[in-house]
Design a protein around this nucleic acid. Structure first.
Length: 934
DNA sequence: GACATCACG
DNA sequence: GACGTACGTGATGTCC
């Protein structure tokens, strides 16, 4: 048995990562009964390994075996091509905890388990296969990955364990149309959208095989490309030579991976029955344990039956009433360790952080609460203080009976970062940011707020109080009752520990109960993909952006504030002079009375509250005849810029970082858009020259620049795709001016004779369509008679009948299902669609707009989620999102690399889930400040 | 706290 | 035939 590897030996190489990924998607989801831990893929993996235990494979019997895993995501291929595998979606959260379990399973079966940092499993497999073949042995690669097919031949075969099918030379030839030796040549030409290997555009596997068979090898083909008869193909191969050669280097496996073991280390060994059966019973695999016990001649372990799942899946999970809940206060390391151990055993824990304030960037951690079972939760106070007003005499001392904050966090960090334990929270971005400032990178996470958002957007809010009342029938203790309100409000660290425990532990308890309620509903609502692909993975990305913040030049803002104050005072005195009396220009009520009563200007219209309307559109109409409204418009603009921007932004500069940190609400906008608050950095002025100067105060650090990338016309492109408008799609494919084209089609004006005014009108119509156009709205926007506007709309629908069809289909769908969906499956509920009266009009237009706006929101979310991996190696940081724009701060020398990488991610963000008929185009700008970058 | 106004996509 | 109306947000100031 201890001879070294050679003739007569048979090595089985199992592609572990690929197997578990396929098993996860192919097998029905299975969870461990006792605690709900997902284990379906682990079971499939163990079933596969079982064949290697004590069985006689005859002449095919393996003598050596190893399971090969990927290690880390960055490999030498990323150094060659930064976009390699950049399109990969995040690993599903239910698969993540199964990866370490798979490694443990391999060890339990006493099978060698190998991985090498910087190399893919495929490279290790290639290296071992070559070594085994050269030593005269046989090799079976357990995988169906086409990237491994280049290794087949000369005693190397593949085996598709899911389909129970051998893959030999003939099977490879059948798939690729060339023998295994030439597979890389075909792959280099055809490219691969999954791994993001570019290949030659327009050439697929069929054409590639044809070319390789004609010319012999890829190198001969490229050298003799001039001989290709088809002109387009010839041109592609000549022009894209470098890209094709890069593709070949990407797909070619490295058979010289440095290994820290030899083939002899992979000899097949019998498992230790105790270790293997112990693992299987821990996983609660009953039939598998029986079969293994039988094979090994051991006693089958007894796995206790736990309570079966509720018979009716619609039944709410059983939970004890809140009145019977038990909330503990954890005061020492022993108590905390008990909770940590319980969390490990369970595989999940609900967590909530309590802090001194709502600003995650400028507050201190006061305590943490935990829940593992409904009705049983704990609060861990860490920084509660005694009396002391926090003012002149400073804060009181930290009171006795609390663990040291550092000691507690040191104990908690491994748990909060353990990939096998799910951390459950309500608005986890908050907790992640706070804990991040204390050096804890909490993962993996589930978020009940985001679960509700994925299922219930449009129906109600997603705050904890709303959800608790709605889904648990329980009103949580109001925070006001704990910290008070108004002037006498205290910070949470001044709250007595017993009151804090009741409040904080209840929050964790509620969060856990909500999770138990929502988790099984996600699947039934068909939003698991949305939740796992578009909501949850955004949490760490946004947390990082918010923590990064953006530098704002206080002096620039301060100078502008001063100038604005002067201008306001000047305008104010002019206005008072014109009015003949002094009044508050900022009061629409007083202004209306001056304009329409005192001065007797015609056109005063009172709104529903009985006050005159004095909005900008009305004042603009008056401004043609009168000076006063014109001055008021100027005053309002300056006043807005000063109070909302130049004054307020200075208040938001963080003391510690010197930067401004916004906070994004993920579940704020019903359509899937983000919203920015405290401060809102998504509405910094840009449309007026005067306002745009405020963007000059948003600056890059010395040595760096700001880079802005924004999607061009993304909503119109989505409309062209969704409504299937051939002319519009064609125009986008050809890169034409879409508003000019619309104008040309509608008004029969040739493109060469287009005037800016006609184009402007067409642009307004295009936007109107996205908003659920109405004659009234368009008339008001263009300031034309309503009949004329209606005429435009009629002509538009005549010219693009597909748009009308799309709008009718969307409203019909909304009426039938009380919801609409984006291309990525995001659900937006439209309960108002059934309303009568004016509200029906609102609901209808919202229903038309939501799939378009929402799809655009989904696309940029996907780009943001993929961005960190794509720019990992660059000295660049993603700072802000403004709906169709991403703003980065990057070292001067790396601008081109960043633009290239970020643009690729953004333009391909819909792939591979949605294949758009129109290209997504991203425009880039850069400069020392945001005004220059935009 | 409601309302009007106005900044953005 | 009348009703009312562009879609989605957040911050500020006034006024009750």
């Amino acid at each position: 048995m201890d001879e070294s590897f050679g003739t007569g030996c048979h090595l089985h190489l199992i592609d572990g990562s690929a197997f578990i990924f396929r098993a996860f998607h192919a097998l029905p989801p299975l969870t461990r009964k006792s605690d709900g831990m997902p284990v379906g893929a682990v079971q499939g993996f163990c079933n596969m390994l079982l064949q290697y235990v004590g069985k006689d494979h005859g002449s095919d019997a393996p003598t050596h075996i190893a399971v090969i895993f990927d290690k880390g995501s960055h490999t030498f291929r990323n150094d060659m091509y930064d976009q390699y595998k950049a399109n990969r979606d995040e690993m599903p959260e239910d698969l993540r905890p199964q990866i370490p379990l798979t490694r443990r399973a391999t060890e339990a079966f006493n099978v060698a388990c190998k991985e090498i940092a910087g190399y893919e499993a495929d490279d290790i497999i290639a290296t071992l296969a070559h070594q085994a073949r050269d030593a005269g042995g046989r090799v079976t690669i357990v995988s169906s990955d086409k990237d491994l097919m280049q290794l087949v031949g000369d005693g190397v075969e593949m085996f598709d364990a899911m389909k129970n099918r051998r893959i030999d030379r003939e099977a490879v030839e059948e798939k690729f149309g060339v023998p295994p030796e030439r597979v890389v040549d075909v792959q280099a030409l055809a490219g691969d959208s999954v791994d993001n290997v570019p290949g030659a555009p327009g050439i697929g596997v069929k054409t590639a095989a044809l070319l390789i068979n004609e010319f012999g090898t890829l190198e001969d083909l490229l050298d003799r490309a001039e001989e290709i008869k088809q002109p387009k193909r010839r041109q592609t191969l000549i022009e894209k030579r470098e890209q094709i050669e890069l593709s070949k280097r990407l797909v070619l496996l490295d058979a010289n991976t440095p290994l820290d073991f030899t083939l002899d280390d992979l000899q097949l060994r019998d498992p230790d029955p105790e270790a293997l059966l112990g693992f299987l019973s821990e996983m609660e695999f009953r039939s598998l344990s029986r079969r293994v016990a039988e094979t090994l001649g051991a006693e089958a372990p007894v796995i206790p039956e736990t309570a079966p799942e509720a018979a009716d899946p619609d039944d709410a999970p059983e939970m004890p009433p809140f009145e019977e809940a038990v909330y503990e206060t954890v005061t020492d390391a022993g108590g905390l360790k008990a909770w940590i151990d319980a969390a490990y055993r369970r595989g999940w824990v609900a967590v909530d952080t309590e802090t001194t304030g709502l600003n995650e960037m400028a507050c201190d951690l006061v305590g943490l609460s935990f829940a593992i079972e409904p009705g049983h939760a704990a609060y861990l106070p860490l920084a509660h203080r005694g009396e002391g007003d926090g003012g002149l005499f400073g804060d009181g001392d930290v009171t006795a009976g609390q663990m040291g904050i550092q000691e507690a966090l040191d104990l908690l960090k491994p748990l909060l970062e353990d990939p096998a334990v799910m951390k459950i929270g309500q608005n986890m971005k908050y907790d992640a940011k706070v804990l991040g400032r204390y050096g804890i990178d909490i993962a993996p996470i589930d978020d009940t707020m985001l679960m509700s958002y994925a299922m219930n957007a449009g129906l109600h809010g997603h705050g904890m109080d709303t959800l608790s009342e709605r889904y648990l029938g329980h009103t949580p203790i109001p925070i006001k009752e704990v910290i008070g309100t108004g002037k006498s409000q205290i910070t949470f660290d001044k709250v007595p520990v017993d009151a804090a425990t009741r409040y904080a532990a209840e929050d964790a308890d509620i969060t856990l109960r909500l999770w138990k309620t929502f988790k099984p509903q996600l699947h039934r609502a068909h939003v698991t993909r949305v939740y796992e692909g578009l909501e949850r993975p955004l949490v760490p990305v946004l947390a990082a952006m918010e923590r990064a913040g953006i530098a704002v030049d206080r002096d620039v803002l301060s100078r502008m504030s001063g100038a604005f104050a002067q201008k306001m005072a000047q305008l104010e005195s002019e206005i008072h002079e014109l009015a003949g009396e002094s009044f508050n220009v900022g009061s629409p009520k007083q202004l209306g009375e001056i304009l329409f009563d005192k001065m007797g200007i015609a056109g005063g219209k009172k709104g529903k509250t009985g006050a005159y309307a004095t909005g900008a559109d009305i004042l603009e109409d008056l401004a043609t005849e009168h000076d006063l409204p014109a001055r008021v418009l100027d005053w309002r603009q300056v006043s807005k810029l000063k109070s909302t921007y130049t004054d307020a932004l200075q208040e938001h500069i963080n003391r510690d970082t010197g930067r401004v940190h916004t906070s994004y609400s993920i579940a704020g906008a019903n359509t899937g858009r983000l919203a920015s608050n405290d401060p809102n950095l998504q509405n910094i002025p840009v449309r007026s020259e005067e306002g745009r100067r405020i963007r000059e105060a948003f600056v890059a650090e010395p040595g760096k620049v700001l880079v802005s990338l924004d999607y061009s016309q993304i909503e119109l492109r989505i409309l062209a795709h969704m409504a299937g408008i051939g002319e519009l799609k064609q125009a986008f494919l050809e890169g034409q001016d879409i508003h000019a084209l619309t104008a040309s089609e509608m008004f029969n004006v040739p493109m060469e004779e287009m005037t800016s005014d006609v184009r402007r009108q067409a642009k307004a119509i295009n936007f109107g369509v996205i908003y659920g156009i109405s004659g009234f709205g368009l008339a008001r926007n263009l300031r034309i008679p309503r009949a004329e506007a209606q005429g435009f709309i009629d002509r538009y629908f005549e010219r693009f009948p597909g748009i009308k069809t799309y709008m009718d289909k969307t409203t019909a769908f909304a009426k039938e299902h009380k919801r609409v969906e984006t291309l990525f499956g995001r659900v937006i509920h439209t309960p108002e669609i059934a309303a009568k009266g004016p509200r029906a009009g609102f609901a209808k237009r919202a229903a038309i707009n939501a799939p378009i706006q929402g799809t655009a929101a989904d696309i940029i979310r996907r780009a943001m989620i993929r961005m960190p991996a794509a720019i990992e190696a660059l000295p660049a940081t993603m700072l802000l999102q403004v709906h169709d724009e991403l703003l980065f701060e990057v070292e001067e020398g790396a601008v081109d690399d960043l633009v290239g990488a970020a643009r690729t991610v953004m333009e391909n963000a819909a792939d591979p889930v949605v294949k758009l008929d129109v290209p997504l185009v991203v425009e880039a700008g850069q400069g020392p400040n945001w005004a220059a970058a935009h």
